[in-house]
Design a protein around this nucleic acid. Structure first.
Lengths: 166, 166
DNA sequence: TTGAATGCAAAGGATTTGCAGAGGC
DNA sequence: GCCTCTGCAAATCCTTTGCATTCAA
């Protein structure tokens, strides 16, 4: 329930509005690059990294080009502004829209490398309980479940069958 | 219970014995560097990274010197052999002794950067349940709880008091 | 106008690779 | 002696930084 509360709290206003507030409050400027980055970052549906964003941004000699350092700098700003949350996967930094919670839980399929967010009150609560038992003041957590997703298991089954027939 | 089972299964024989088997089974050689690495890696108590190991290994001009590439190569072999498990923390790779379980859960203190392993049947079970509900075939998981440990909270309290008196 | 933001080039840190020589078996 | 392993150097990958220029306010 703590989770849903914070979800509502932060999602009332659009990312663009929230980012403008953030910029103003810090005396930072609303540049073309930041606006372009915001559009592309919030067109993402799931988890993404800097490289994926760059691929979707205008090329080096196109009008809306954003350089690599600026991409990284701006992603950090989005995180500071509470628009994105950042975490590590496979040794690189990945991002996803911040729904207002420090809780991050994913199912990671080792075959198709898909990453699906999960939200389970039971898991959250059990984690909070363990932290409490260790006298640990928890500010957030990150859970990554590795395995094989349903699609890949089914695909594998199909493939096997096909192979068996040959 | 799955957890305790696998713990017993793999801990019967010493790391050295298990690694020798691993090497033999692959036609690999039991070199001085591998033996030295094994000693140092298994003298570690908690989580460690390549750099920490290198600091504890003989220096560049000493007898038992192991080069950086060999350290990384050998760590990967330990992981393959099931002696160590590897995961990411703070953007770099860290290792710990593999107790035979794919389950990894830690409390990470953001102040003193300590990492304490936790083992909670309740958490494990709730995670397994969520995976099942998503039709996800789980092979392992990694849970990182961020926050402040008891020591750091107490230290902070003490520090504050002191400051207040001044 | 003026200081913040950008792009460039280059640095940085962690890890990996190609290759010639060293060393298990 | 053969073939694996090692150390060296250099490359790679991702990310950050210094600095001159550009541009938002």
């Amino acid at each position: 329930m703590v989770f849903e509360q914070s979800l509502e709290r932060t999602n009332r206003r659009s990312p663009a509005d929230r980012f403008e507030d953030f910029l103003r409050s810090r005396g930072m400027r609303n540049t073309q690059q930041r606006r372009i980055m915001l559009d592309v970052a919030f067109a993402q549906t799931g988890v993404f990294d800097a490289e994926q964003l760059i691929e979707q941004l205008p090329g080096k000699s196109s009008p809306g080009y954003v350089s690599r350092p600026t991409v990284y700098r701006t992603l950090a700003e989005f995180v500071d502004a509470g628009l994105l949350k950042k975490f590590e996967l496979d040794g690189r930094s990945v991002y996803q829209h911040d729904a207002g919670s420090e809780q991050i839980a994913h199912l990671f399929c080792v075959e198709c490398r898909s990453l699906v967010e999960i939200r389970s009150a039971v898991v959250m609560e059990s984690i909070q309980k363990v932290a409490q038992e260790s006298n640990f003041q928890m500010t957030g957590h990150r859970l990554l479940v590795r395995g094989t997703c349903q699609d890949c298991r089914q695909r594998r089954r199909r493939t096997k069958r096909r192979v068996d027939l040959v």
